[in-house]
Structure formats: C-alpha cells, structure tokens
Design a protein around this nucleic acid. Structure first.
Length: 164
DNA sequence: GCTATGATCATA
DNA sequence: ATGATCATAGCA
C-alpha cells in the first residue's frame, strides 16, 4: 500500500481532512478505513487546542505536518489527530471514525493509542496512513461535541463507501 | 503545590 | 442528563 507522504499533510487543513476520508489508518497489524474526520484550524478556531496562548502542548500544532497528536480527553479517552499545514501554521485533523466504529475515544481504545504515540511521525513511524478507495460521496456537516464554533461545517463523513 | 477544566463514553 | 477520571494549564 502507498503511504501518504508529508506533502499530503502540508496542505490546507480542510483539504487534508477531505482527502483523508477513505484512506487507511495502519498501526501495527491493525488497520481501518477512515470514515469520519474533523478539521481544526488553530488560529481562527476557538474550539481548537491551538487557539489562544501558545503553550508547550500546542507547539506541535505549529510544527511539521504528518505528525500524530494524541491527547487525553476527560481523563479517559485518547483522541488521535494528525498535524497539517507547513511549519509555522497551526492546523490538525481529528480522526473521528474508523470503519463502523465511531467516536475518537473508541478508535484510540481499539488501536491502543496512548500518550506515547504523541508526536510520532506517521509518514515513517509504526503508525501510517495509506491510500484507499475513492468510491464514495463526502458529506459535510457541522462539528459535534464542542462548546464553541459548533456551527462551522468542518466535519467530513464518508457516505456509503465501497470500503476495503 | 493545588485546582479547574475538557475535541468523550457508558449508564440510568 | 450525569458521572467517571487524569493530563495540562493557570494561578497562589
């Protein structure tokens, strides 16, 4: 399978999110088709972790693209993100759905993600994303589960795909 | 050093 | 609708 190169991630966050649909997330022996993603823009996005004051944790948003950003939400659930856009620009894509499994927390539980995977290079590390099917429609909806900027249409869902 | 809070999920 | 549960941020 063809692994997505860094150039793929160095695009506009929305484009990356769009293109990420139908791709295959690979981690060790496990793999699954990405069916649902969300774009987080950083600079202008109040809901993004990169919004506001720059902190140690947020620096990864401004670093090189193609990096895994894993964070713990509510003390229980790890969420898996991919850093997008070139160095100096904040942006990331939250992987929300894999195959039939929905919810960022569930995915990380399935794949066994934890804090150690934060900052990994997903163009060369144990975690990679490969090319997949293009045979599906993309549905764009407002984001969910947020407290701010909820109405922004930055959620992308693969509709009725011919999955691998 | 201590406290508040959050891109969630499971349960009632 | 509400509780579980902990890494990070912000402040004393």
């Amino acid at each position: 399978m063809k692994i997505l190169n860094r150039k793929f991630y160095a695009q506009d966050t929305v484009d990356v999110a769009r293109n990420l649909l139908g791709k295959v997330l690979v981690f060790g022996d496990k793999q699954g088709t990405i069916t649902e993603v969300e774009a987080y823009l950083g600079d202008d996005d109040p809901a993004c972790h990169a919004f506001g004051r720059l902190t140690e944790r947020k620096k990864i948003f401004f670093g090189p693209p193609g990096i895994a950003y894993v964070f713990l939400a509510y003390g229980m659930h790890w969420c898996f993100n991919v850093i997008t856009e070139p160095v100096g620009k904040a942006g990331c894509v939250l992987i929300q759905g894999i195959n039939d499994t929905f919810g960022p927390g569930r995915i990380s539980k399935l794949f066994g993600f934890n804090g150690e995977h934060n900052g990994l290079d997903i163009t060369s590390g144990p975690i990679t994303i490969c090319e997949g099917s293009h045979d599906f429609d993309i549905e764009i909806t407002p984001r969910i589960g947020l407290s701010q900027a909820v109405d922004w249409p930055l959620r992308f869902v693969a509709k009725q795909a011919n999955m691998i």
